[in-house]
């Protein structure tokens, strides 16, 4: 019962802050609500025995990405009238599409079959050597290649960002 109550709390906060994020007039407010959202998601990860992910959710998302967003918003220094009209003309269509999405996804998810077989990483197995070590072992053995590719993607992103954002000097 207690876990369900906790989940209910987090779920309500997550959905609520999500709605707030997409409806705030000022993007800075949106980003701040996003921060609250990310913290709650990180807490949800803890429920699911993913301590490492919870940590990097806070560090990378909240610490790096959101700060980057704030930084860009301040850099652009938007005027107030820029934000007067929040929604586009076709917003009902967007809302309709989102609603249909919810209906469809729920319809699909209700058809999910219960697991045919379970993997070796039970809660006890993870706890015995620690979440970080478990993830690390798999990441650096079985998923070494995707991991390295990720580093290349990040490198490309760095270079791309520098090239794109650099002021042209004549």
């Amino acid at each position: 019962m207690l876990p369900k109550l906790f989940f209910a709390y987090f779920a309500v906060v997550i959905v609520g802050t999500s709605i707030l994020v997409i409806t705030r007039k000022n993007p800075i407010h949106s980003v701040l609500w996003m921060l609250v959202l990310f913290v709650h998601i990180a807490a949800l990860y803890l429920f699911l025995n993913a301590e490492f992910l919870a940590a990097i959710q806070i560090i990378i998302y909240a610490g790096a990405i959101l700060v980057l967003f704030l930084f860009v918003i301040m850099l652009l220094n938007l005027k107030r009238e820029e934000m007067e009209k929040r929604f586009q003309k076709q917003w009902p269509l967007g809302v309709f599409a989102g609603m249909v999405f919810i209906v469809f996804l729920v319809l699909i998810l209700s058809q999910i079959v219960v697991f045919p077989q379970l993997g070796p990483y039970s809660i006890q197995a993870i706890q015995s050597e620690g979440n970080l070590m478990t993830v690390g072992k798999v990441l650096y053995t079985e998923y070494l290649l995707p991991f390295e590719i990720t580093s290349v993607i990040l490198l490309v992103a760095i270079i791309g960002a520098v090239v794109l954002a650099k002021r042209k000097v004549n």
Binding site: Q88, Q90, L93, G94, A97, V100, F101, F104, L105, L107, I108
Partner: peptide, 20 residues
Amino acid sequence: LSHYGIIMALGALVIIGVMI
């Protein structure tokens, strides 16, 4: 951008609808 987004979302909806 959002016109493309809507068309894409509607396309995804059609695909999911077909699957369901």
